[in-house]
Simulated assay, not measured.
Amino acid sequence: MFYRIKELEALTGLPRSSIYRLAREGRMPKPVKLGLRAAGWRKKDIDDWAASRSA
């Protein structure tokens, strides 16, 4: 299962630009290419990332 950018924005409360910046800096999982113009983040990667931030 994957989170798309809109779902990730709602889940994290972060704007799109911050999500992509954190991923580029290696502070958040990177998106996975799902198609020519589609990307998503693996649910497990984001769940693990969120758990590590709250710990």
Rank of each mutant, 00 (worst) to 15 (best):
M1Y: 00
Y3C: 09
I5N: 05
K6A: 06
K6L: 05
E7T: 02
L8Q: 04
E9K: 03
A10C: 03
L11G: 04
T12V: 11
P15L: 00
R16I: 06
S17R: 08
S17V: 09
S17M: 04
S18M: 02
I19Q: 05
I19H: 02
R21D: 10
L22I: 07
L22F: 00
A23E: 02
R24A: 14
R24M: 11
R24F: 13
E25Y: 08
E25N: 11
E25F: 08
G26H: 13
R27I: 08
R27Q: 07
R27Y: 05
P29I: 07
P29Y: 00
K30N: 10
K30R: 13
P31W: 01
V32C: 10
K33Q: 13
G35W: 12
L36T: 12
L36P: 14
L36Y: 12
R37I: 08
R37F: 13
A38Q: 09
A38E: 08
A38F: 12
G40K: 05
G40N: 09
R42S: 10
R42H: 11
R42E: 02
K43V: 09
K44E: 00
K44V: 14
D45P: 15
D45R: 15
D45W: 15
D47G: 05
D47A: 11
D47L: 15
D48G: 04
R53K: 14
R53H: 10
R53S: 09
R53L: 15
S54I: 14
S54Y: 09
A55P: 05
